[in-house]
Nucleic acid binder design. Structure first.
Lengths: 193, 193
DNA sequence: TGACATTAGTTGCTGCGTGTTACTTATTCC
DNA sequence: GGAATAAGTAACACGCAGCAACTAATGTCA
């Protein structure tokens, strides 16, 4: 999760004050681009919150959840955190951070979000770990690969990468080729450990 | 969908103007109770919207989706509409009404929402129709009943109801008895026609 | 150098559950 | 009494998740 520093040096989630009548999603996209320097490949609206204390007494906060590759450089003052080890946030921001993950997991099987977390070329183990991170639970290796292959979502390349110890892994790339007759989606919600 | 009449006589979704800092969900519950006279058995937050024209130029609208039995009497000026035959609403309200159904369908397999649409005692055909309404697609009869039985969600009673022509249907009641070891949820998203 | 640990990747089997088809049962309408 | 209608059930095949066991390729360490 991308966390920036406030003027007082406290860790806060990226935000902007609302501009009356402006489209919310467009505002969120611009905020992301301003901070990271890149467009967001995937974005989903969160659940508005008015309870819990806000540092500047804002009446209402409208969160958005975006996903992008954390391999991109982080501008000054900001840093990527693992979602299970977040820094101390204000109460309302903490609630939004937790809600964001919930929102993300609700939308999981709708879009191939996990690919957005990875560089253009990746190993299947990395892809599986991305899914496990987003889903919040472990997946079965064989089932994961079978389902993935059946959905024609990833395409093998000729390259192999040696990751230190163990057998080198084949590199794959995202290839969402549409199959006529409606390509079968991957039911990751069915695959368990 | 419950639609009320504005002061000008136009059909509008039930709403209240925000009270600064008040908990949003609690506000929604109170609104529902004020209008229908009953508490809402099920409620979910929707996606806030600031775009589209609002009749009184409100900057932001925060929708909630509730579910209750439409067999209850409707107070003066309000009426239940089928979700596929809605009256003419203001642009933003129309967007919210469509978004509400989407939100509802996203949460479908999380909670047994369909039971909340029905009276305490119902036939399996009625329950299946409720699910089909909420999911927006047809379900297979045999598969539906098998999955339902496997989840131990409904319990048969001794009563039977004759609905005009055809064989009388056995009446069931909602019985969410927790089975130790995690009762299997119904995968309605897998059941098709 | 050779045994071991580690990670990637595959394969065959089993069982569960959906989809299909066809059937039985019970009621109303004509 | 027969046709129409709707509820409810049973048998079967197929797809696919879960499991376990396997092969393959690399690094580590004695």
């Amino acid at each position: 999760m991308l966390v920036v520093k406030s003027a007082a040096g406290k860790p806060v989630l990226p935000f902007v004050w609302s501009v009356d009548g402006e489209a919310l999603e467009q505002t969120a996209r611009e905020l992301a681009k301003d901070i990271t320097g890149h467009g967001i490949p995937w974005l989903a609206p969160g659940v508005a919150i008015a309870s819990k204390k806000h540092p500047a007494d804002a009446a209402l906060s409208v969160p958005f959840v975006g996903v992008m590759s954390a391999t991109m450089p982080t501008p000054g003052g900001s840093a990527w955190y693992p979602v299970d080890v977040l820094p101390a946030l204000a109460p309302r921001q903490k609630a939004m951070a937790e809600g964001a993950l919930e929102t993300l997991r609700l939308h999981m099987d709708v879009a191939p979000v996990a690919f957005r977390l990875l560089p253009p070329v990746f190993t299947l183990s990395e892809l599986q770990q991305a899914y496990e991170l987003l889903l919040g639970r472990l997946l079965h290796k064989a089932s994961f690969r079978r389902a993935l292959q059946a959905a024609y979502l990833a395409e093998p390349t000729d390259e192999w990468r040696s990751e230190g110890r163990g057998r080198p892994a084949q590199l794959f790339k995202f290839s969402p080729r549409k199959r006529r007759g409606g390509h079968r989606s991957v039911r990751f919600d069915l695959i368990g450990h």
